[in-house]
Simulated scan of single mutants.
Amino acid sequence: MESKVLKPILAVYVGLFILFLYGPFIVLGILSFQQGPEGGPQFPIIEWSTYWYKHLFGLTPPSRIAPLPVGEALVRSLTLAFMTMVTATVLGVMAAQAFRKRFRGAGIVFYLIVLGMMVPGVLTGLGTSLLANNVVGVERHWWSTAFLAHVVYTFPFAFL
Rank of each mutant, 00 (worst) to 15 (best):
Y53S: 09
A95P: 04
A95Y: 04
A96V: 08
M117Q: 15
F43L: 12
H55C: 05
F43W: 10
L112Y: 04
G121A: 07
S63W: 06
I26F: 13
I46H: 14
Y111H: 04
A81D: 08
Y13L: 14
L123G: 04
V152D: 01
N133K: 12
Q97E: 13
G58E: 07
L131G: 03
I26P: 00
W52D: 07
S129H: 09
M117N: 10
P120G: 09
V70Y: 10
L148C: 09
G121S: 12
V14I: 15
P62G: 03
Q35T: 12
G125R: 03
G40S: 15
I18L: 15
G39M: 07
Q97S: 08
L21N: 07
L80M: 07
T50P: 03
L74F: 15
V93C: 07
G23W: 13
V119G: 06
T89M: 12
E47L: 13
M117L: 14
T50Q: 06
F110V: 00
L19M: 13
A106E: 10
F20P: 01
F57T: 15
M117G: 03
F159P: 02
L130P: 00
V138I: 14
A158N: 06
F17Q: 01
W48M: 08
R64W: 02
V119H: 04
E47M: 08
V114E: 11
R64P: 00
E139W: 00
K54I: 06
L6T: 06
A96N: 14
W143I: 05
V12E: 01
A96Y: 04
S144Y: 00
H141L: 00
L112N: 02
N134Y: 14
T60H: 04
T154R: 08
R76W: 05
W52T: 06
G39V: 08
I113N: 01
I30R: 02
G15W: 01
T84A: 08
A146N: 14
V109W: 05
A11Q: 05
P69K: 11
P62M: 05
F43C: 04
L74E: 06
G125M: 05
W48E: 06
V93F: 12
G92F: 05
T79H: 04
A146K: 03
F82I: 15
I46Y: 13
T60S: 11
S32R: 13
I65R: 14
V109C: 01
V90F: 10
G71C: 01
G127Q: 01
A95C: 08
W52R: 10
T145F: 02
S129I: 08
S3K: 14
G29L: 04
A66F: 13
M94D: 02
T87G: 07
L126A: 03
F155Y: 10
K101G: 03
L10H: 03
Y13T: 10
T87W: 05
L68C: 01
A73Y: 09
S129T: 13
V90Y: 12
G71W: 14
T87S: 14
